[in-house]
């Protein structure tokens, strides 16, 4: 299955946030979208997953999602979005209940995703007891439980401290090695993009246009051994983005 954005334009009132964006996320591919703050990255992701309608253009699905996928387009949010009144297990079963997966089958799925995200011993913990990193692992486990065709990740590591971020990036790479999920990964952190992205799409500041698309051929699990190459790509992206970021930083804004 391929997820495609076709010439998407979007405005909030008079403010144009996205201008003629076309991109696609193929099967088993992680596409990172980077750009200065306020360039419409999150809007783009909401349009991709059908939480918002674009003014012009469309989000399209090519091919059928896998038959066992309960929720083909599944989000991972920056603020985790866990229900504080449900345990780790309860938060995952929440999204299974509505797809009539119950009892033994649900239990099997929950055990499996908790094991994949190294959370097995925390099944009965409350979200308030977990660190930020663990909360995001729960959110990733919840996303995996519905077997998504494409994961839509909105700055999933931005609320975490840099050490936790490193750990979670390693975990994500390991997970990708096991499951081979596809993802559209929004971030403002170029280091993350260079570590996790098969392709990096750079947006300009508002209104967001595609400025550059970079494909990185080095396999994800080997990138740590190629610091020079990845650093060079990161540097080049930053050179291209710096002026935009500076201008965006000095902009008055009325939209989030």
């Amino acid at each position: 299955m391929e997820l495609i954005l076709d010439h998407v334009n979007h405005s909030y009132g008079d403010v144009e946030v996205l201008n003629d964006i076309s991109l696609s996320v193929g099967s088993g591919e992680i596409v990172c979208i980077v750009g200065p703050s306020g360039c419409g990255k999150s809007t783009l992701l909401r349009i991709l997953g059908g939480l918002e309608k674009p003014d012009a253009g469309a989000a399209l699905i090519a091919g059928d999602p896998p038959a066992d996928s309960l929720n083909p387009l599944t989000y991972v949010f920056q603020d985790f979005a866990l229900l504080p009144w449900r345990t780790v297990e309860g938060n995952i079963s929440l999204v299974l209940e509505d797809h009539s997966v119950r009892k033994d089958k649900a239990r099997a799925i929950i055990t499996d995703v908790l094991a994949r995200t190294k959370l097995s011993e925390f099944a009965n913990a409350w979200p308030r007891q977990l660190s930020g990193g663990m909360k995001q692992r729960v959110a990733i486990a919840r996303a995996l439980s519905v077997n998504p065709a494409v994961m839509l990740m909105d700055e999933p590591l931005s609320a975490l401290d840099s050490q936790t971020r490193e750990l979670l990036m390693d975990d994500l790479i390991e997970l990708w090695g096991q499951v081979g999920f596809s993802a559209c990964y929004i971030t403002h952190n170029l280091a993350e993009a260079v570590r996790l992205g098969h392709r990096i799409v750079m947006l300009s500041r508002r209104p967001g246009k595609i400025r550059e698309i970079v494909d990185i051929d080095i396999p994800l699990n080997e990138r740590i051994n190629h610091p020079a190459e990845t650093a060079a790509i990161q540097r080049r992206l930053w050179e291209a983005m710096r002026d935009e970021a500076r201008a965006a930083d000095r902009e008055l804004s009325d939209v989030a």
């Binding site: 939480l51 949010f77 979005a81 229900l83 009144w85 929440l94 999204v95 209940e97 509505d98 519905v146």
Partner: peptide, 24 residues
Amino acid sequence: NLIRMGQSFGLSWISIVRKIIIPG
């Protein structure tokens, strides 16, 4: 954001009310 999360996982309206809005 919790409500939006519920929608993004395809929860029905009644589930969102019962499992997210009322406990919240």
